[in-house]
Amino acid sequence: MDQRRTGSRKIHSAEGEVPARLRCTPPAAAELYEIAVLDTTGGDGEARWHTIGWGVDLGEADSIAESYVTRTLCPYDEARIRRNGHLVGVHRRPA
């Protein structure tokens, strides 16, 4: 889905009549890397996986996942990275 910058249907640029469109939908989910963390803080004693975000490439997903297991306040025990349902990376809290 494209969204115009203004309410006008005809947008003019300095170079001429070029439609200015912005992409407002994310890339297809198959192209994104899902980052999920293992939450062991639940009161019922069960560990649960929660999706905390998405990365547009493996480098970004790795960085996000690592930051959640190494942060100083309440680090998670484990973070997993999946793409298209396939596990492509795991980060664990340092011992």
Rank of each mutant, 00 (worst) to 15 (best):
P26S: 11
E66M: 09
W49S: 12
A36D: 11
N84V: 02
V69P: 10
I52F: 01
L73C: 00
Y33P: 02
L87S: 10
G89F: 01
E17V: 04
V18Y: 14
P94S: 07
R71G: 10
T41W: 03
R48P: 00
V37T: 08
E46H: 10
H50Q: 15
A47N: 12
Y68N: 05
I81S: 04
S67Y: 05
P26K: 08
E31R: 13
T51Y: 07
S8K: 14
E60S: 04
G55R: 03
Q3I: 03
V18E: 14
D77K: 13
E46P: 00
T70C: 05
A79I: 03
L87M: 10
D44W: 05
W54Q: 13
T6I: 01
A30L: 06
L58K: 07
R5E: 09
A36V: 09
D39K: 03
L87Q: 10
G53C: 09
I81P: 04
G55D: 01
K10Q: 11
S63E: 12
R21N: 02
R82H: 13
G43W: 09
A36L: 12
L73N: 07
R23H: 04
C24V: 14
A95N: 07
Y76N: 03
E66A: 13
G89Y: 01
L22W: 07
P94A: 10
G43L: 08
A30C: 08
I81T: 04
V18N: 11
E66R: 15
R23N: 04
T72C: 00
A61N: 06
S13Y: 00
H12K: 14
E15W: 06
A30H: 12
P75I: 01
R23Y: 01
A61E: 06
A28T: 06
T70E: 06
P27D: 14
T41L: 02
R83L: 01
A14Q: 10
I35T: 08
T41D: 08
R5V: 08
D77G: 10
R21H: 02
E17D: 15
Y33W: 14
K10S: 10
Y68K: 12
